[in-house]
Nucleic acid binder design. Structure first.
Length: 451
RNA sequence: AGAGAGGUGGCAGAGUGGUCGAAUGCGACGGUUUCGAAAACCGUUAUACCGGCAACGGUAUCGGGGGUUCGAAUCCCCCCUUCUCUACCA
């Protein structure tokens, strides 16, 4: 008999899984988009070099059809059960015990059916969700075709590469020479990739942070100081979970993650919110330390400050109405460029190709500065428009004309990440007598030259 | 960290097994009235999903999850969180 099913209930000491906590599918691409613009979706997935687009989209559409049929069936059964329950209540009240018992037979039977339908519905929803989690965002029309970094489009280049004097050195030598950043001490205290900034090195960090924050505020961004540990729901909200789990440091005791970027806590501020139109666009800037395990990253390119487990970054985040998001992206890039110009660093702006851009992005510009002693470009910022991809997970909406809620667009960019900026500042501005810092930093640092 | 009390709609705040998606008040919006405004009066005022061209109908949601029951805001279990007292600390 099925009547004993209550006793087989599993122990409830286990944390509920993501799927049970968020019963409704929190999708990334919207099913409605897959359904209504199938061709566009398939073309977009192909441009991103997603291998199994046609199969996965067909599978989602198939499951979605089943989901809707099940939902209808389930709702109808529930409606009948609710109606019977009301009748039983009325019969009980009027003293007709026998009549009530008669109806209970039907309602008990109905319950078994609805339970089966509900379980199936949950399975189908989980299936849809798992497939959607696999699908990357669709690229914007302007994204160049291509597979690797070599296919990225150079949008523009600014500033002249400096000619270094004969004794010029890469930054990992300069930091030792002037004793401003100490990797050995970091290794002793923590491990590789956790540098210790000392004296003028520490003051330069603080100067850059203040400079970037002040510039962001002047450009209309509200400063936020968020937590640097986040919970699991936030990790899912911005898409670090489930796919990039291994890249974040995790505190198992409390199930919290150290943030890899301020994007995570700041964007999640707006999770499950319906934002009033008057408050749009949201413009936030936040300084935080960032933590990345960088599992599996080695090689010559990661020497010195090029790649760290802990570093400082100022992040800018915007949330806009869909029709304004690309103007906002241009504005963000312009702001980042203005920072690089004020610091006097030669840079270039890249539009990433379909194969090189991030999973969640619709359009990404990378900004790279010229590292004179290393003789190569270093990525110091990445600015992206996620359109509704993140907002769909976040349930971040506004009320459009006519009272309907509609997903917003989310964007973010680094403005800026410190280590590679420091590397370029040290290398590009070195002289025989020391390192001449750009004018704009003098008052922030309290000095104009290192050495 | 220990003890106790709470978490209900935009806000305040009722509701301790049925007719409760939820009284009442405030706020907001629309209307009547007015030369205009205030006041008064009338009405509207959550989100998501399913069906429907639509009108509309159905389902779910009272911090989150699970359970008991024909039926749960209400009873039971777990988790989160707020307040008070104690302990501790910056």
């Amino acid at each position: 008999m099925l009547g004993h099913c209550g006793q087989t209930a599993k122990s409830t000491t286990r944390r509920p899984t993501f799927a049970t906590r968020f019963h409704n599918p929190r999708t990334m691409l919207q099913v409605s988009v897959l359904r209504e613009q199938t061709d566009r979706v398939l073309a977009g997935l192909a441009k991103k070099h997603y291998p199994t687009g046609p199969e996965d989209v067909a599978a989602v559409l198939d499951l979605d059809q089943r989901r809707r049929a099940l939902q209808t069936r389930h709702d109808d059964a529930q409606a009948e059960a609710n109606d019977l329950a009301r009748q039983i209540g009325a019969l009980m009240k009027s003293g007709d015990k026998a009549g009530a018992e008669a109806l209970k037979i039907r309602t008990t039977e109905l319950k078994q059916h609805t339970k089966a339908t509900a379980d199936e519905l949950t399975q189908v929803e989980i299936g849809i969700q798992q497939l959607l989690y696999k699908l990357p965002n669709l690229p914007h029309a302007s994204v160049p075709a291509g597979r690797t970094a070599a296919d990225n489009e150079v949008v523009r280049e600014h500033g002249a590469k400096p000619d270094l004097y004969a004794g010029a050195q890469p930054h990992w030598e300069l930091i030792k020479k002037y004793d401003i950043i100490d990797f050995e001490l970091g290794i002793k205290v923590t491990g590789a990739g956790f540098p210790v900034y000392k004296g003028q090195g520490a003051r330069l960090q603080r100067a850059l942070i203040n400079f970037f924050l002040d510039e962001a505020r002047a450009a209309g961004y509200t400063e936020i100081q968020p937590p640097i540990l986040v919970n699991e729901a936030s990790g899912y909200g911005t898409g670090q979970l489930p796919d990039k789990e291994g890249q974040m440091y995790h505190d198992a005791a409390d199930n919290l993650y150290l943030i890899p970027t301020a994007e995570v806590p700041v964007t999640n501020l707006y999770r499950d919110e319906i934002i009033a139109v008057e408050k749009l666009p949201i413009r936030n800037a936040a300084y935080t330390p960032c933590f990345r395990r960088e599992a599996g990253s080695w090689g010559a390119d990661v020497r010195g400050l090029n790649r760290l487990h802990q570093f400082d970054k100022i992040e800018i985040v915007q949330i806009t109405q869909p029709e304004h998001s690309y103007a906002a992206l241009d504005q963000m890039v312009a702001h980042i460029e203005s920072l690089l110009q004020k610091l006097g660093l030669p840079y270039r702006v890249l539009r990433l190709c379909g194969g090189d851009m991030g999973f969640t992005s619709a359009l990404t510009y990378d900004l790279e500065v010229w590292s004179a002693a290393q003789g190569r470009w270093l990525e110091v910022s990445s600015a992206s428009n996620f359109e509704t991809y993140q907002a769909n997970r976040l349930k971040c909406r506004y009320r459009a004309e006519g009272g309907k809620t509609q997903l917003l667009h989310t964007l973010n960019g680094s403005a800026l990440a410190l280590p590679r900026i420091v590397a370029a500042l040290l290398e590009n501005n070195q002289t025989a007598d020391g390192i001449e810092l750009p004018e704009v930093l003098h008052s922030y640092c309290g000095f104009g030259r290192i050495g």
